[in-house]
Write a protein that binds this DNA or RNA. Sequence first.
DNA 1: GTAAAAACATGAAATTTATCATATTTTTGT
DNA 2: ACAAAAATATGATAAATTTCATGTTTTTAC
Lengths: 235, 235
Amino acid sequence: MKKKIETPHCETCGSRHKSVFCGIASSEVKEIDAIKGCNFFDRGQVIFHEGNRINGIYCINSGKVKIFQIGSEGKEQIIRFAKEGDIIGYRALLSEEPLSASAATLEEATLCFIPKSQVLKVIQENPAFNLKMLKMLSHELGEAARVITDLAQKPVRERLAESLLLLKDTFELDEEKNIQVKLSREELANIIGTATESVIRLLSEFKKDKLIDINGRTIKLVNIQGLVRVANIFD
Amino acid sequence: MKKKIETPHCETCGSRHKSVFCGIASSEVKEIDAIKGCNFFDRGQVIFHEGNRINGIYCINSGKVKIFQIGSEGKEQIIRFAKEGDIIGYRALLSEEPLSASAATLEEATLCFIPKSQVLKVIQENPAFNLKMLKMLSHELGEAARVITDLAQKPVRERLAESLLLLKDTFELDEEKNIQVKLSREELANIIGTATESVIRLLSEFKKDKLIDINGRTIKLVNIQGLVRVANIFD
DNA sequence: GTAAAAACATGAAATTTATCATATTTTTGT
DNA sequence: ACAAAAATATGATAAATTTCATGTTTTTAC
């Protein structure tokens, strides 16, 4: 199902300007463009598998992606999301460890693959890009710490409200305040570490409380301030 | 209580050879040595405070440190530990964000402070050090992901067994198999996100099951394979 | 050295959350 | 379009974990 498509060019890639590559030199863009590969993925396809080695990074040209681990009981745990302009796979590449997580698409997606040699070349030759990578990794480490504290301390209800707000920040709302990503109840459960049934029940409550509106997998954030209060966020 | 002591010299610092600094040039060591500051901390002293800005990194010359956040109900969540040779504070420095966590000593400690300018200088001028930083951040991100999955999916009993094994890996065992760090029951609870009483009860069970032995805050790992089994680790 | 404070310990009750059972609805594959 | 599969929904029950109460031991401060 993974099929080659017309390779989009980095020079004209709209995603680039939102990405960690936005500041690199034109010559460097050309080099990446020449060496990269590009693939189309259907909804739900796995991009890479936890435990494997990776020899480059993926840059998301279009589409949305979940990064997840499988726990000891075989249950999926979603670690983070990525979208157009984001890169994935760099953690394992830079640490020279096997992939700590898998990645799969949440919808049709186009991803470019940039080989390790080229990534390291840009890191070594472009100090600004280098610092940007350090900054990105550091930022994510801070986000991971906050997730750890929330998982350890907040009850399921608060975690669900908070993750809806997080999804809003990551994927943004459309003009009708719908979160611009469609996740199953099970996937929502796999973000916050709870049972699918708990998510279903709590979403119904949130709806009854006029915090959200539900239409299949589309969630409309009706009362964001209310959700912030339920999420117990004060910062 | 924070008092200046005789500044240890980087050239002769035994910690350096275990640290991210182990490969840097002699001239760079001398430069750091000339510009760094050094402070002694008593047990339990806070080194830096979540939310503040930091203008350098601390390098642990001796002693053990916990890095923690305060959750929305005021409860401490321990994110990670650091010891002799480790650096702390680099996440906030590199991301140019406020500190995402606080740090406090678990015992008397000596820490050197290296100002931001000097850290960035070494990063920019020493590609090997640079890559080592990228590698360290990436590695930690992988560890954070594993913690997230465990907190989200494992029951308290498994998490406690696992964190004892993690403490073993971090601080090592003495010749009697005692974990080389002393933590209160509350601090153990703050690693795994549970109530202090639960830790107390489970430690007693582990002792009854001949997995560990307890002497005040000293925990002896009697049956490591058994703990691995209880922790439900298969990798 | 002693009083006060903090940490540790244990039982009972309450709460949260998961699991199981069972419908109903929606999606998917042919 | 239709059957099968998957996802959603809801109630009842069970299990895990927290909270509260209370007592004991250990540590700390003067």
